[in-house]
């Protein structure tokens, strides 16, 4: 539900990331990593991004979303596994004392700028 706010942050961070001597360059693609546990609906985010990107260097840019699986490590037996169901106990020893190694990401990895002189 807060995809609009997230889209606005993406535009802001992306714009600030365009190097000064490439000001005016058009962004062709934004590469985003989204953990499966994060409260983001990819389609909704793409829609918001398209709207918010208008009249910015990101207008028309593709929002590429890489989904990151939820990886966990058991603090009791050190077992590591991928959580793909809503159950957060160790699949080896059933301990509930676990650390999530990934799955909460909402990160901008990189931008791809269109070469103006290409």
């Amino acid at each position: 539900m807060h995809e609009m706010g997230v889209a606005m942050q993406i535009i802001e961070i992306a714009q600030a990331s365009i190097p000064a001597d490439m000001a005016g360059a058009r962004v062709a693609r934004v590469n985003l990593k989204v953990g499966k546990l994060s409260a983001i609906v990819a389609d909704s985010l793409r829609f918001c991004f398209e709207v918010v990107a208008r009249e910015t260097p990101l207008e028309g840019a593709e929002l590429h979303i890489e989904e990151v699986p939820v990886q966990a490590r058991c603090n009791a037996c050190r077992h590591e596994w991928t959580i793909d169901q809503p159950a957060f106990a160790c699949t080896a020893c059933e301990s509930g004392d676990i650390t999530l190694l990934s799955g909460r990401e909402l990160d901008i990895e990189s931008l791809e700028l269109a070469e103006e002189d290409a």
């Binding site: 993406i10 990331s17 062709a28 990189s110 931008l111 791809e112």
Partner: peptide, 19 residues
């Protein structure tokens, strides 16, 4: 990285909810 499609990739690596 300069991509085959004629784009230039700029690493950002930032959390969107940093702020």
């Amino acid at each position: 990285e300069t991509r085959a499609s004629g784009t230039r990739e700029i690493k950002v690596v930032r959390r969107v909810l940093d702020a």
